[in-house]
Design a protein around this nucleic acid. Structure first.
Length: 253
DNA sequence: AAAGCTTTCAACCGCGTGGGT
DNA sequence: AACCCACGCGGTTGAAAGCTT
């Protein structure tokens, strides 16, 4: 909370907003709507910059803003969206109705970021041209998984595996490489080096799935139909990566 | 109880983008 | 094409609150 001050050059007030200022902004916007942030403060009788007004409205005063603690479901969405999108807070916020980008960013730095360092995971690039896809696998039968051997029963000891095209149903003559990063014995991260479709992914999954005796198909289909990730599949030529983890259940987040 | 340290989160700043001229 | 302006975004800051010693 910043102490209210007045900018000597502009005469505009800075720092935390008073209840009275909030009320002035709310009543102006509810009466006249948002038409021009830089002009509005003057008409609303506020000694604030348009930028300050916009921020206050967007992050605090706007109707339907959800406040309070983040639910586990919301945290999961943030965490996995961050794997997919990187620090694109506005994009992540669009997946969480009622939460602002600022709030999500704060929550990430305060609570969620350490999940990455705990797992030696490297955050995704913020390069917007990078269209890789991330997904989460959450097996239903936790107890059985916990009894699985530490190392999965498929051989992915090489850091980079190359599969011939017959592994991929729709790859014609190209070789598809799959880069595998084992985070530890219960989490894996895969990058598909060349474009793959959902069908490719599904087929690949069936070939390599470590939990094939655990009704994986249902889980897999759930995962692919999860609306959080639907938009990632719009482009059939988009390179994919995916992330397999049962940390969520094991560690309770 | 008090001092010092850490965490939280509202708010600020700078920069990029897009639309208008 | 070049400039201006408004807006939106993401990184950073700093005061208050909470916690520890």
């Amino acid at each position: 909370m910043r102490t209210p001050t007045s900018d000597i050059k502009t005469g505009l007030k800075k720092g935390s907003w008073s209840r009275e200022e909030d009320q002035m902004l709310i009543s102006y916007i509810s009466r006249y709507g948002i038409w021009n942030w830089s002009q509005m403060p003057r008409f609303a009788g506020l000694s604030r910059s348009g930028k300050s007004c916009r921020l206050r409205w967007m992050n605090y005063l706007k109707p339907n803003i959800k406040r309070g603690n983040f639910s586990k479901e919301e945290e999961d969405i943030i965490f996995h969206s961050h794997l997919l999108l990187g620090n694109r807070w506005a994009a992540i916020a669009s997946r969480l109705p009622g939460r602002t980008d600022n709030e999500i960013k704060n929550h990430w730095h305060a609570h969620l970021k350490k999940r990455l360092t705990d797992h030696n995971m490297v955050p995704k690039t913020t390069n917007q041209n990078d269209k890789r896809t991330s997904m989460t696998f959450k097996p239903d039968n936790v107890e059985e998984i916990l009894q699985q051997p530490a190392n999965h029963n498929y051989d992915i000891s090489e850091s980079c595996l190359t599969f011939e095209d017959d592994i991929f149903s729709s790859s014609s003559s190209t070789t598809t490489s799959i880069e595998h990063h084992q985070i530890d014995n219960r989490a894996d991260y895969f990058d598909l080096g060349s474009p793959g479709t959902v069908d490719d992914l599904q087929y690949f999954w069936q070939q390599l799935c470590p939990f094939e005796n655990l009704e994986l198909e249902n889980n897999h289909l759930d995962m692919l139909s999860n609306p959080i990730f639907q938009d990632s599949f719009d482009d059939p030529n988009s390179p994919c990566s995916f992330y397999i983890s049962d940390y969520d259940i094991i560690q309770g987040f």
